[in-house]
Nucleic acid binder design. Structure first.
Lengths: 170, 170
DNA sequence: TATACTTATATCGATTCGATATACCGGAGA
DNA sequence: TCTCCGGTATATCGAATCGATATAAGTATA
């Protein structure tokens, strides 16, 4: 997934390592470490997906190659992300997905969140009405999970609505 | 942190590996893998913090030793968790923290979230009013971050209020 | 009886993390 | 001017964690 993120960010403009870390961190959901980033850059370079152009001073600016662009497209098309981070990453690059496929990505995510919500509610209700009285802090954690999933679905629904009207308007 | 979680869960009752995975997963914020869990169990056993009692069939039930209990207490007292998972884990075991110290843990978390909120709002406002119009999906991600942080603070405030009244009532 | 799912422990390679090392650069203040 | 400090920048190390896979026993079901 880091490879995917790097390819996506470099697609927009050439960047060096430090800048990539900043750009990825700015997306808000992943503070990647240098211990992940630099090995990933060398990995991608060895595979021929990115190439280093000499930058100013110590900097090594990287850019995507044509095969890298293709690889990014493949990764974008591969579905099946259940983790939150994977979805957010995919969303950050949803602009590169064909417009007619975008709604499907969002709806798949909605289904996954709906499932999560059911599970979270079941746990919460189960714990709340349990014979052995559960720890108040664990109960709070379960409630948080329910609420944040609900909020996430609401947020996603706005995004879906926006997507539909954008598609209709086009 | 996995070590901490294991010690905390085993403190309540002896459990075998598979059961620990389930119990940890049931907390809702960490689906730990066997590739992390089993090495961790052996690590903890080698250090003398847990010991295996023979369970039924293939099962190897583990329980905390006395040194393990002490170790757990130390880890509980060590502060300085910025990651979400670390906080949730600590909260799951807050019942083991001395009542007079609990409020401090919650308030530290509140400060961290408040900082995060300011950062998230700055990014969001900055991107929204930027000259180069930002991708609508990235904007949505930023808005999500603002909202979910706000919701988290609201949830935490309820927990803090509950904590205060509990302390006052005692 | 065959099939398939759940329980249960375990290991492998690859990825990722957190800490640390190194060094250059620019600004603030003595 | 000198010195210290924080930000920039690349890099590496060991340890933790993940995801996939192997194995095998029990249990339900058709």
């Amino acid at each position: 997934m880091l490879d995917f993120a790097i390819l996506g960010l470099l697609r927009e403009q050439p960047r060096h390592g430090y800048e990539l870390k900043r750009a990825l961190g700015d997306l808000g959901f992943w503070q990647v470490s240098f211990g992940s980033l630099y090995p990933a850059l060398r990995r991608l370079e060895k595979q021929g997906f990115i190439e280093a152009a000499k930058g100013e001073g110590r900097r090594k600016a990287y850019r995507v190659t044509e095969t890298g662009r293709v690889r990014f497209g493949e990764m974008l098309a591969e579905s099946g992300d259940d983790s939150d981070r994977d979805f957010q990453l995919r969303l950050a690059f949803l602009g590169y997905v064909a417009p007619e496929s975008r709604l499907g990505v969002l709806e798949d995510r909605r289904t996954a969140l709906q499932d999560r919500l059911h599970g979270a509610r079941r746990s919460f209700r189960g714990a709340r009405s349990s014979a052995r009285n559960p720890d108040r802090y664990r109960l709070a954690l379960m409630e948080r999970r329910v609420r944040s999933t609900e909020a996430d679905i609401a947020w996603l629904d706005e995004l879906i609505a926006g997507e539909r009207s954008a598609t209709a308007g086009a």
